[in-house]
Structure formats: C-alpha cells, structure tokens
C-alpha cells in the first residue's frame, strides 16, 4: 500500500492523465458487469436483476447438453484464426507495398478504394454472395455454363463456404487494418533505411531485416487483441450469407448463430447472457495464457 502511495505521489500527473480513462471503464464497463449475474438467474421483471430466483448453472445447460458444442467451438475458433491470420498478413503486405511504392496519386487512390468495403453492410454482402453463387442465375454458374462446364450448386455443398466467408471477412477489413500497419511503418525512423541503403542492402533485404522486425510488436499485439474474442463470431456476416440454410451448418455454424437459433423462438435473457459468459471466459483464459507465453519470450511484446 505504501509503495502505491509513494508511486501515486511521485507520478501524480501520470495518474491524473490516465484517470479519465479508468473512470470511463469503471462507469461504462465494470459497474454494468453486474449484469453477468443474469446468467445465473431465472429473469423476471418483478424481481429485476437481484430479485429473480437464482438457478445456478441451469442457463448453461442448453449449450452443453446438445452435443454440438465441440463442433461449434471448433468452427468458431478456426474461422477466427483464419480471419485473424489471413487478414493481418494481407494487411501487412499491403501496408509494406504502399509505404515503399512511388506514385503519390496511385497510392492515395488505392488506399481509399481499399477502405470502401468497410462501408458495405453485411446485408449487401449477402446480396453479392447470392448473385455470385446461386445455381440458376449466379455469375459463377452462368460462366461455367457458357464455358460448357457442369454448373455447381454451391448451396447444397459445404466445402466452398469456408473460403467464401473468410474471403468476404478479410476483404471487408482490408483497408481498416492496413492503416494500422501503415501508421506503424511511419513510426520507423528513416535513419535505419538510409544506413542500410548505404550498406548496399536492396529493397527486399531492407524489408526483411528492418521493416518486418520492427512491425513484429504491432503484429503480435493485434493478434493478442483479437484472441480474446476468439469465440465471438461476426454474427451478421454468417447470418446474411448462410441464413437458415441448415444444409451448410456443418461448415458454417458458429456459437453466435447457434445461440441465435436456439433462442430466436423463445428468447431468454439468462440463457443469452450465459452463452456470452462462456465465450468471454474461453477468450479470457486463452489471452492470459498466450500473453504469459509471449511475456516469457519477449517481455516487451506482451499485452499486459
């Protein structure tokens, strides 16, 4: 305690500077966390949060009893890993190219255009997917027919959908993520590159030995940040593309869509909260573990 007060006095300005942020999270995140208790009650408006009867883990039962949880967790984790890694690597590649390339207007224009998909709603993405892949009039099948090939009914097969979904997710986030890496590259001092140039290093070498290593903390940070949400899915993305098509669920069902279907007919605050808590807990354990490992290897890269 005394250490803390000494620290407080010594760094009082620093404490003051971070205080607004801490208060913000207390008011808008920590206090509302009392709502987690909903997961353990049978909610009624009569009782409210604390007056409703306590039911223990009963609200979690629907997740575990169905036997689908393993497949759901696997799907959710794999999709998110694909989103995280494919997305980050592509964003990094774009950022590196854009930072090194000449042609001011080309760069500016392409950067702006890459940001456009961010504004396209999932509803419209769903419409694109339909227009591309439907059996009767979809662009892909029209092309196949014109080439004299056998048309392929995407909506009856599970195989292509993982690629389609990953593609559209990565596509939507491309511009957004690229900006982060671009900003990080801009933080790298020119001196390093100048020195390397004088030493005769070509552009590939400079990227390999200067830019990439210096981007590593950012890359690891972004991965760590995303891992916490590894069990939380992009509900809208899956819903708009797959909808009610049970035929595709083996490959496309994630926890969020599953919970939505389970509760769509008879919504229950307790069960909804319970599902969210399960997702949070899983992410929490994962992040703390991975962060611990990262910390062992390279303290500076750790998230906390």
């Amino acid at each position: 305690m005394r250490v803390f007060f000494n620290e407080l006095v010594k760094n009082k300005v620093l404490f003051l500077m971070i205080l607004p942020a801490l208060l913000f999270f207390i008011v808008f995140s920590y206090i509302p966390m009392v709502g987690i208790y909903y997961a353990f009650t049978n909610f009624s408006f009569d009782g409210g949060l604390f007056g409703s009867p306590f039911v223990g883990l009963q609200n979690f039962k629907f997740l575990f009893e169905s036997g689908a949880l393993y497949n759901l967790t696997k799907n959710t984790v794999l999709y998110n890993l694909a989103f995280i890694f494919v997305g980050n690597i592509l964003q990094l590649v774009c950022a590196v190219f854009l930072s090194e390339m000449a042609g001011k207007y080309f760069k500016k224009a392409t950067q702006s255009i890459m940001f456009l998909p961010f504004f396209i709603s999932f509803v419209l993405i769903g419409a694109f997917v339909y227009n591309l892949f439907n059996f009767e009039t979809g662009a892909v099948n029209t092309l196949l027919r014109e080439l004299g090939l056998q048309p392929y009914d995407f909506y009856l097969h599970t195989a292509p959908w993982k690629y389609i979904i990953v593609f559209f997710n990565v596509w939507k986030g491309l511009g957004y993520g690229t900006v982060i890496y671009l900003a990080a590259i801009m933080g790298i001092s020119d001196e390093y590159h100048e020195a390397a140039k004088i030493d005769g290093a070509n552009i590939f070498k400079r990227i390999r030995y200067i830019t990439l290593p210096l981007l590593r903390p950012t890359f690891i940070l972004l991965i760590l940040l995303s891992l916490g949400g590894i069990l939380k899915g992009q509900f809208d993305l899956f819903w708009q593309i797959v909808g009610n098509n049970g035929m595709l669920y083996d490959a496309t069902d994630i926890i969020d869509t599953y919970v939505y279907r389970s509760l769509a007919i008879n919504f229950d605050i307790g069960m909804g909260t319970a599902a969210g808590l399960f997702q949070s807990f899983f992410g929490f354990v994962l992040v703390v573990t991975v962060n611990w490992i990262v910390r062992k290897v390279q303290k500076d890269y750790a998230l906390f």
Binding site: L22, F25, G35, I36, L49, L277, G283, V287
Partner: peptide
C-alpha cells in the same frame, strides 16, 4: 496492471441491459 484493467473490459461485459 492498468493495461490489463483496460483490456479486461473487451473480454467480459454485462450485456446491453445494465449498460
């Protein structure tokens, strides 16, 4: 510690209603 205090809020949430 403070970074963890802040990051923790992205993991757990009490949901829409208490907020």
């Amino acid at each position: 510690k403070l970074a963890f205090f802040i990051y923790f809020t992205t993991l757990f949430s009490g949901g829409l209603i208490p907020w």
